[in-house]
Nucleic acid binder design. Structure first.
Lengths: 318, 318
DNA sequence: TTAGCTTATGCTCAGGATAAGTATAAGCCA
DNA sequence: TGGCTTATACTTATCCTGAGCATAAGCTAA
C-alpha cells in the first residue's frame, strides 16, 4: 500500500499473484450442522480463481450446483486471507484466498465427488453448548489456557491474558457468547493448543481435541460459523437450510444447531409468528412422537414487504 | 471455482492476476463525516498489493500513518471486488480489489500528499437525513425511480420494482433505514441514474446529483459507509473518531454524522452512562454557547471488562 | 382402558429496555 | 434582568424479553 494511486503503471510481473477460492458450505441435517469437506474431511472445497464467470458469486454457485445437484440458496463473501506465512512456514506465498459462505441442503452429493459432509462440531467440540457447557471446556481447555496465561513474562501480562481468556470463553461467571468462535480459535492458536499452530514443533500431548485441517482452513471455517451465528439473528437465512415444509420445532432445532445453544420454545414460536416469517401449509406432520405439529413454510413475501429481521435467539438458561 | 482442489498443480501463469488495495478512510470533523480522497476527490486512495508487510492490515496502517501522521485506530476488511467488467468496459480485467475501512482523525495531512478530505455526503446527498429527509429525495429521486419502475416490461415487474424502491428508500410511509445505503446506490445504478452506470452512453440530463468517482470507488465507499453505520450500533468504534476528550454532545454529533440522522439527546446520554462507555475527566468545556458541559473520555477498560456493545441510536422522530 | 410419556400450543406475568417528554440548571449576551 | 443556548435530572407509557404454567393431542405399555 506504499505505492502510488492506481493510475500509475507498475509492471504486471512485479505484482502478479495467484488467487484461490475457498468455500464454507453449510447444511443442517437432522438438527446437526454440517460443512462440505474434501481431502478426507481435512480441507474445505477450494479451487483456483477463474474469470470464466461473470462474478465470483456466480462461479461459486455454478460449481456448487454441479457438485450437489441442489441450488445454492444464499451466498456471501467472508474474508480475503492474504497474510504472509499463513500456510505455515516459508517466505511470503504470493497468493490470496477469497472465502465464501454458502447455505444449502445436504441431500444427495454427486457420487463421483470426493466431497463429504462433516459435522462442524467435529472441528470445534467446545462450541456445542446445546447440552450445557461441554465437559472438555472446564476439564481441558480451562487448565491449559490458565497455564498459558501463567506463562506470560510479567504478572500484568498474566492477568491480561487470563482476562482475555475468561471473556472469550465465558469463564468465571461470564456469559457464553457463541459469536466469539473465531476469537476462541485464535486464542487457542496463540496458546499453541491447536495442531495447526505447532505444525512441525510437535508436542502433541498438550493439544486440545478437535479435528484439524490443512493450511488455515479451520480458521476460515471459524470465520464462516461466526458470520452465520451472527447473521441468523438479524436476517432470515435459516430458511435456506430448511426443506420447503417444516415444523416449528424442526426450525428451532436448526437454529439451535447453528447457535450451539438452546432457545426457549414458546418464545421462539411467538417470535416467528409475530414477525410473520412463516405461514401454515395446512398439512400436519406425520410419523412423530407426541402430538403432531402443524407444518409451516417460509413466507417469501416478507422479503418484499419490509427490511426483515432474523431470529433473536430467545435464550434458554437451562 | 470449477477446478480441482488446491493440491493439484495448475501452472501459475494461467492463474496469475494482480491485486489492488483500496481504502475507505473515515474521519469526523466538526460534526461532518469525511473520507480521504485522491485524484481531485474523484478516487479513493489505492495502490498495488505488496507483500512487504506481515499482513494487509499492517501494510495499510503503515501507509496511512505516513500520510496523515496519525495512527490508524481501527481497521477492518470490507470486501474483495473481482467481478468481470467492474471497471466499466472491455474484457475481464484479471485483477481483484481488496478494500478496507479505516477510522482515524483528520488533523494534519502531510502537505506533499495529493490526498484530501472530502465530505462523504458530497457523494451521497440523499443519505443525510439530519435535517429531515432531503428535498431531492422526493423532488428528484422519487419521480425518476418511479419512471424506471414503470419502464419494466410487465405490470408484475413494474410493481416489484416499485416495491423494491419503496422499501430501500423508505417511500410510502416506510421507515428510512440508514444501513441500506449500498442497496440504494445499486438501485440507482441499475436504474442508470448514476454517472458511473452510463459511462459512455451519455444521457446526463436525467442523472441524479452527487459527485461521481472513478471505476467502482463510489460503490466501495457505499460499502464502507454501510458497514460503519451498522457497526456503531454494536461496537464502540465511534471513539476512534473522537479526540481524547469530548463533550457528550460532540460525541452525539459524531454518531449523528455517521448515521445521517438525529438521536434523542437525553436517551443518548443515558445509554452512554449506563453502559459505562465514558468517564468524566473532571474538566469542563470552554468556549461554548450555553451551559458548559463536562468533558468525558472513552473508558478503554470496558474493552477488557466485557464483550461491549455500541450505540443503539436512540432515534428521534422529529 | 387408562396411566404416563412426548411434543404442540395458548396464555400470563414481572422486569427491563425504549421512546418521548417535562423540568430545572447554568452559562452567555443584549 | 430577560431571553437565548446547552446541560442534565427525572418521569411516564409502551413494548420487548425471559420465564413459567396450563392444557391439548398424539402414542405406547400395562
Amino acid at each position: 500500500m506504499a505505492g502510488p494511486p492506481r493510475k500509475t503503471k507498475v509492471p504486471d510481473s512485479a505484482r502478479a499473484i495467484t488467487a484461490d477460492l475457498v468455500a464454507v458450505l453449510v447444511a443442517v441435517t437432522d438438527g446437526e450442522p454440517k460443512i462440505m469437506t474434501i481431502a478426507n474431511a481435512a480441507a474445505l472445497p477450494s479451487g483456483p480463481f477463474e474469470f470464466k464467470h461473470r462474478s465470483l458469486q456466480s462461479g461459486l454457485r455454478a460449481w456448487v450446483e454441479a457438485q450437489t445437484g441442489h441450488p445454492l440458496g444464499y451466498v456471501e463473501q467472508l474474508y480475503t486471507f492474504a497474510d504472509r506465512g499463513r500456510t505455515g512456514d516459508g517466505p511470503a506465498p504470493h497468493s490470496v484466498s477469497i472465502s465464501y459462505l454458502g447455505l444449502t441442503r445436504e441431500d444427495q452429493l454427486a457420487e463421483r465427488a470426493e466431497a463429504h459432509w462433516s459435522g462442524w462440531y467435529d472441528y470445534f467440540p467446545w462450541e456445542d453448548h446445546r447440552a450445557g457447557p461441554p465437559a472438555l471446556l472446564t476439564k481441558l481447555l480451562m487448565p491449559r489456557l490458565r497455564a498459558w496465561a501463567k506463562s506470560a513474562p510479567s504478572p500484568t501480562l498474566q492477568r491480561e491474558r487470563w482476562q482475555r481468556v475468561a471473556i472469550t470463553f465465558g469463564f468465571e461467571d461470564r456469559e457464553w457468547n457463541e459469536e466469539l468462535i473465531l476469537q476462541r480459535y485464535e486464542l487457542l492458536f496463540e496458546a499453541a493448543l491447536i495442531p495447526e499452530a505447532v505444525r512441525e514443533s510437535g508436542n502433541a500431548a498438550t493439544l486440545v481435541p478437535g479435528r484439524a485441517m490443512t493450511a488455515d482452513h479451520r480458521r476460515i471455517l471459524a470465520t464462516g460459523i461466526a458470520r452465520l451465528r451472527a447473521k441468523i439473528k438479524y436476517r432470515p437465512v435459516v430458511f435456506e437450510l430448511m426443506p420447503a415444509e417444516f415444523t416449528l420445532l424442526q426450525l428451532q432445532r436448526s437454529v439451535e444447531a447453528l447457535a450451539g445453544r438452546l432457545v426457549h420454545k414458546q418464545n421462539f414460536r411467538r417470535l416467528m409468528e409475530q414477525q410473520q416469517l412463516v405461514e401454515e401449509t395446512g398439512a400436519i406432520a406425520t410419523e412423530t412422537v407426541g402430538r403432531p405439529a402443524k407444518l409451516f413454510r417460509f413466507r417469501h413475501a416478507v422479503l418484499a414487504e419490509r427490511a426483515v429481521a432474523g431470529t433473536k435467539l430467545p435464550l434458554s438458561r437451562t
